[in-house]
């Protein structure tokens, strides 16, 4: 859909970014600002006192490993596509998708573990903030899964062809996915060290 733009010849431009890839970068900036706003709210609220301290669910460590792995498999799929290795391209994409789903499931288990310990969304703001930060991250990841599902569908049920347009598409989804991975590590580290 995004690729339906008018065609440009840009041989006189020395811009290293394709416009649509650049659009994605800017989108990531705005998502980063959303989380920066929430994190600064967290810091301000925490310094005001009345802040509940609780350990993070252990499963978050495994989910962290999972999302790092899914990022790696996507990078692998991208490289495979560039080299024309169809089999590993397909497998990498599918693996990424399932690791993404696995991450979400683990997040869900983490939340229910917290909930069973009495840390609900509406109690102490320490808990509310955790649910908001991790929940919004999960929502963004669900959006990424939809985009990934389209690409997986193309790879498995359509003929795989080398095209510039597909490279750009893969670049866009990769940047988004790697960003979510880094964002999760930042969030996890932040929550871990500033409980």
């Amino acid at each position: 859909m995004v690729g339906q733009g008018l065609k440009y010849r840009d041989d006189y431009r020395n811009a290293t970014f394709h416009p649509q890839v650049f659009l994605m970068w800017l989108g990531l900036v705005s998502i980063a600002m959303l989380f920066a706003g929430l994190i600064s709210a967290y810091i301000v609220r925490q310094s005001a006192g009345n802040w509940l301290e609780f350990p993070l669910p252990h499963i978050f460590i495994i989910s962290t490993l999972t999302i790092v792995m899914s990022s790696a498999t996507l990078a692998w799929a991208y490289r495979s596509y560039l080299r024309g290795w169809q089999r590993s391209y397909r497998q990498g994409l599918l693996l990424t998708f399932f690791l993404g789903v696995a991450f979400l499931v683990m997040q869900y288990y983490g939340w229910s573990e917290l909930y069973s310990k009495g840390i609900g969304i509406s109690g102490n703001p320490a808990g509310s903030f955790l649910y908001v930060l991790t929940g919004l991250h999960a929502l963004h990841l669900i959006g990424g899964l939809f985009a990934l599902a389209v690409i997986v569908y193309q790879a498995w049920w359509r003929h795989v062809q080398m095209s510039q347009q597909q490279v750009i598409r893969l670049k866009i989804i990769s940047y988004y996915w790697h960003f979510l991975m880094i964002l999760w590590i930042v969030l996890y580290g932040f929550l871990y060290f500033t409980r």
């Binding site: 998502i31 709210a41 969304i121 102490n124 908001v132």
Partner: peptide
């Protein structure tokens, strides 16, 4: 706009949760 509007959304998300889910932001 790109840098400031997302922060407004952050504020609105917390407001929405206060309204709908009974949080205390």
């Amino acid at each position: 706009g790109l840098l400031s509007f997302p922060v407004l959304v952050a504020g609105f998300v917390l407001l929405l949760l206060d309204r709908l889910l009974g949080t205390s932001f």
